[in-house]
């Protein structure tokens, strides 16, 4: 089991535990505020926008062009932005803290 923390826009940190699936599914199933996952994870809605801390960037594969294109038109996008639906849970993420981009 991997522990993953989500820091929401209002400053709350929600600690979750997951084994497999995407970070969007994990956040949505744990009612993390600001992660809606409207499209269920097919990269169509950008309602799972998160920031990955610079020191954790290497723990994830680089974003696909389609993910980058989605983020290009999203509010609050920075160089640390990712879509949680495109990121899979794995062992290297244990105890990571991710920041939710939207309210």
């Amino acid at each position: 089991m991997v522990i993953i923390n989500f820091k929401t826009k209002d400053g709350q940190v929600i600690s979750t535990e997951g084994r497999k699936g995407s970070l969007m599914e994990l956040a949505r199933d744990n009612n993390v505020k600001g992660i809606d996952g409207d499209c269920g994870g097919v990269c169509s809605c950008a309602t799972c926008h998160i920031y990955v801390a610079p020191e954790d960037t290497d723990k994830f594969p680089t974003a696909s062009d389609i993910e980058k294109d989605m983020l290009e038109f999203e509010d609050n996008t920075t160089e640390h932005s990712r879509l949680a639906c495109q990121l899979e849970i794995n062992e290297s993420l244990n105890n990571i803290t991710l920041t939710v981009a939207n309210e």
Partner: peptide
């Protein structure tokens, strides 16, 4: 089972 599907059938933005 298309995995990545950035469609705009519900609009966009």
């Amino acid at each position: 089972d298309r995995k990545v599907n950035p469609h705009v059938a519900f609009g966009f933005g």
